[in-house]
Amino acid sequence: MSELIIENVWKEYGDQIVLENVSLTIASRAFVALVGPSGCGKTTFLRMLLGQERPTRGTILLDGQPIPTEPGRDRGVVFQRYSVFPHLTVLGNVLLGKEFSNARYKAKLFGAARRNAVEEARKLIGEVGLSGAEQKYPAQLSGGMQQRLALAQALIMKPKVLLLDEPFGALDPGIRAEIHTLMKRLWHETQMTVVMVTHDIREAFTLASRVVAFERRRDRPEEKQRYGATITKDISIWPPRLAGVPSKFSPDRDGPIDSLGYSRDDPALSGE
C-alpha cells in the first residue's frame, strides 16, 4: 500500500504564496500526472512530497504517517536533469542504492554480496533496455538512455512512490514515445504509485490514471504574489487504469503515442 493524502497544503516563500489550499488523495498504485503553466508550483509540490520542502500549512500523509522531513528510500525520484551520477558507470549508478543499503560504512560491496547485487542490477538494466552499456559513463549516453538509467537507478530501491519532474521533457518525440511504453510497463510491473509533473498534456493523458491541473485562479500581475495556484481540474481517465490491471476496453489507447513534429516542451522551444 502506498496511499498519499495531501490535506489543505499551503506553500509560501516569504511574501509569495506559491500554492494555496491544495487537497488531494492519491490512491495506491495510481499514476497521477500534474499539469499546469510554468512557474505555478508543480516542482514545489513535488519537492514537498519528496520531503525536500515542508508545507507552510497543512499535512501530507503517506500510508497514514506524516511524510518524513527529508528525502528517503521510500520515495524515488527522477528529475529532468542531473538524476544520474556522472562519475559512475551505468552499472555503478544502478548498484549505488544497493551499496548504500548493504554497506553502512564503506558504501561499497565486495565478493558474493556484490555479485548478487550486480545480478539484480543487470536485470534492471536489461529491463530499461540498456544491456551492453553497463560499463559506459552517463556522458557517453544519449538523453533518453540517461533517463532510462535514472529510472532503473530509482527502481532498484523498490520505492513506494515514484516522483517524476518532467522526466522526459528534454527528449525527442520519437524517443519520448519509446520511453512512455517503458514507463507504462514498469508501472504495471512494480505497481508503485507514480506522481509525474509534465507540461505535455498529451503525455499526461497517455500515461496517467488521473490528470490533475494546477493553476492560479487570479493571475493578474498585481495579484500574483497574493494568490497561489491550486487544483483547478482533476480528471480520472476512463476506462480506469491501475498498476498491474490490464485495460479492459481500449488497450490501443494505452499503447505508446506516435507523436510527430515538435511539441511545446522540446528543448529548443521551451521557455525555461
Binding site: E70, R75, V77, F79, Y82, A150, A154
Partner: peptide, 10 residues
Amino acid sequence: EQIIKAETLG
C-alpha cells in the same frame, strides 16, 4: 538534484 537523488537511494 544529485544529492537528493542519493538521499532517495538511502
